[in-house]
């Protein structure tokens, strides 16, 4: 059975089709990532699935329940950690946890016990008595997630959980996600970062302009856009045209001219031919300031998938 299944899911705001016929089949267990730039429709999709927004078209079932007809049943089994801390910042960490526990039906003493337990596990015991507005970004995220698992949900929605976090806090959030998954929770995670999806997700859906434009495992997606990207900066921007021609011919690929007038990048199918291509630049007297060969970034996966940015240079 699928944890989430949608068919033609649609949300319209005025003239704008924020979510435009999204089909998803998300297996139970593991992490499923929805990847896309700002405004792609990720948050709107999640909000519909979490029963926060009415569905305008198509249908969606979450854990076997229709989000429109059985929203109460859905809410009993899901939890949501929104993009912005969904906490009362005037209240302390303990008070926030107790508040949610009480709203979930815990008795006063059981709510207090659960709050203490959660704060301990999230390394927030000392901060528990302080108002949340005094917390750092990483602590806020952790208490936010802790609040989401007062009752361990069957499905957790995490909307851009690491946006704006420093690397250490980001790693902590990742560890929490992994622990949740090993405890049997299905996690639906939206992100703008390919690296994050790569680290955590079993499968990824790439969304743009309200539509799913690609779906698959991280490896499948990366293979579909080539094994890597070669980025080159020249000492002399004047020679960029010539360099683009040479690289295009040597690598048999489209060369993209970057906004930096001295830089260009090429999607590379086969890393082995890269040294020869670079050597050809040097033979032709085109001097390289620096170069890098790396995984395709989200931008590149994205541009490649939407197919509207790479221009034939040769």
């Amino acid at each position: 059975m699928y944890a989430i299944e949608t068919k033609g899911l649609t949300k319209v705001f005025g003239q704008h089709r924020a979510v435009d016929g999204v089909d998803l089949a998300i297996p139970a267990g593991g992490v499923y990532s929805v990847l896309g730039p700002n405004g792609a429709g990720k948050t709107t999709t999640i909000r519909m699935l979490a029963t926060l927004l009415p569905v305008d078209g198509g249908q969606a079932t979450v854990l076997g329940h229709d989000v429109a007809r059985e929203s109460g049943k859905v809410r009993e089994r899901i939890s949501l950690t929104g993009q912005y801390a969904s906490l009362d910042e005037d209240l302390t960490g303990v008070e926030n946890l107790v508040l949610i526990a009480r709203l979930l039906g815990h008795s006063r003493s059981s709510a207090q016990r659960r709050a203490t337990q959660l704060l301990g596990a999230f390394g927030l015991s000392e901060a528990g008595g302080r108002q949340v507005k005094t917390y750092s970004g990483g602590m806020r995220r952790r208490i936010d997630i802790a609040t989401s698992i007062v009752n361990t949900p069957d499905l957790l929605f995490l909307d851009e959980p690491t946006t704006g976090l420093d690397p250490r806090s980001r790693n902590q959030v990742w560890d929490i996600v992994r622990a949740l998954v090993s405890a049997g929770t299905t996690v639906l995670l939206t992100t703008q970062y390919l690296e994050e999806a790569d680290q955590l997700a079993d499968r990824i859906a790439v969304i743009d302009k309200g539509k799913v434009i690609a779906e698959g495992t991280p490896t499948e997606l990366k293979t579909s856009v080539g094994s890597g990207v070669l980025q080159v900066r020249l000492r002399d921007p004047e020679r960029r045209g010539a360099a683009a021609q040479l690289l295009g011919a040597a690598l048999g690929a489209h060369v993209q001219l970057d906004t930096d007038p001295a830089a260009l990048s090429v999607q590379v199918e086969d890393n082995d031919v890269v040294p020869r291509a670079l050597a050809e630049l040097t033979y032709s007297g085109i001097s390289i300031a620096d170069f890098a060969l790396g995984q395709p970034s989200l931008d590149e996966v994205f541009l490649s998938l939407t197919g509207n940015a790479s221009q034939p240079a040769a």
């Binding site: 009993e76 089994r77 009480r102 709203l103 979930l104 039906g105 815990h106 059981s110 659960r114 337990q117 959660l118 301990g120 596990a121 999230f122 390394g123 698992i149 007062v150 009752n151 361990t152 790693n171 990742w174 560890d175 929490i176 992994r178 622990a179 949740l180 090993s182 405890a183 929770t185 680290q199 955590l200």
Partner: peptide, 26 residues
């Protein structure tokens, strides 16, 4: 993926996740 993490954290997390049983709605 396995990563290094402060000792104890994961065990505590698992413990707390096991304790999160569903309650009757208020």
């Amino acid at each position: 993926t396995t990563v290094t993490e402060p000792p104890g954290t994961t065990e505590e997390l698992h413990e707390v996740l096991r304790g999160g049983v569903r309650t009757k709605r208020p």
